[in-house]
Amino acid sequence: MKNVTKDSFQADVLNSDKPVLVDFWAEWCGPCRMVGPILEQIDGETDKIEIVKVNVDENPELAQQFQITSIPNMKVFKGGEVVKDIIGAKPKAALEADLADFL
């Protein structure tokens, strides 16, 4: 999964042709460590959606811009807009159900 920063966010996420799921996470976040591998798996199984991650410690500006107050927070961007917002770690099946429109 690609690491997106505040400098590459425009190009990698907002200007992307495909829908992009951005996983906002941090090293110190236990539940994030659980979701990471699940997203990794989903990423390997589909080409329809791009899955990337943003480290909120290194990119506080992005966390603030998107009003993140709890992680993991997974936002799907399409045409530069947030079209889906998932907060909190979930089992794979539940995540896939949430993302059904994009898989």
């Binding site: 941090a26 909120v56 966390a63 993140i68 107050t69 709890s70 992680i71 927070n73 907060i87 909190g88």
Partner: peptide
């Protein structure tokens, strides 16, 4: 509003405040 300003875990979410 849970996860949108409501939290049950200060060590997880305190950073954002």
């Amino acid at each position: 509003l849970s996860g949108r300003g409501i939290s049950w875990c200060a060590t997880c979410d305190g950073f954002f405040f």
